[in-house]
């Protein structure tokens, strides 16, 4: 029983027909072709599929797309562009926080939600905010460093970070 819904992704309205059982991660990737959001475990444990729902990080593999109507969805495609990187993306590159890159979209969105709420997080704040995002390459040290350096850049540059 398909239903037509409107999803607001990165500020753009998309009209899609979905089954009630369609997961947000699948609709984003397969229907809207926003493949920056990764599908890892599919059970809400790895964080690769993290998107922001009304500004808060959630696992898009645990969310039925049909329940996201009328909510603001932010994916990694909404964070920055190759020509104009978000401060966090720049910091991840500068600090060597990306290796295979599979966890990076989710990491970046969790980090963005943290900095939106807490512009000067401690190392413990950062580790707790990223606890739901698993990285198998970096050992996390450089990711934590990148988030902390982005926080400094954003608080230093007035209104920085887009």
């Amino acid at each position: 029983m398909k239903r037509a819904i409107i999803l607001v992704v990165n500020g753009t309205e998309h009209s899609v027909e979905v089954q009630p059982s369609d997961l947000l991660v699948d609709v984003l990737r397969d229907r809207l072709r926003l493949t920056g959001t990764k599908k890892g475990c599919g059970t809400g444990e790895c964080g690769a599929c993290t998107v922001l729902l009304d500004g808060k990080p959630v696992n898009s593999c645990l969310l039925l797309a049909i329940r996201c109507e009328g909510r603001q969805i932010t994916t990694i495609e909404g964070l920055g562009t190759p020509d104009s990187l978000h401060v966090l993306q720049k910091a991840f590159i500068d600090n060597g926080a990306v290796q295979c890159g599979f966890c990076a979209p989710g990491m970046l969105l969790s980090a963005k939600a943290l900095l939106d709420e807490n512009p000067a997080p401690s190392e413990m704040d950062i580790r707790q905010a990223l606890a739901g995002n698993i990285c198998r390459c970096t050992g996390y040290v450089k990711i934590v460093k990148a988030v902390s350096s982005a926080a400094r850049t954003m608080s230093g540059a007035e209104g920085g970070g887009r």
Binding site: G44, K56, P57, V58, N59, L63, S110, A113, A131, G132
Partner: peptide
């Protein structure tokens, strides 16, 4: 419980 993402849902 869980992590940030889980607790938000």
């Amino acid at each position: 419980i869980g992590a940030v993402q889980t607790r938000n849902l």
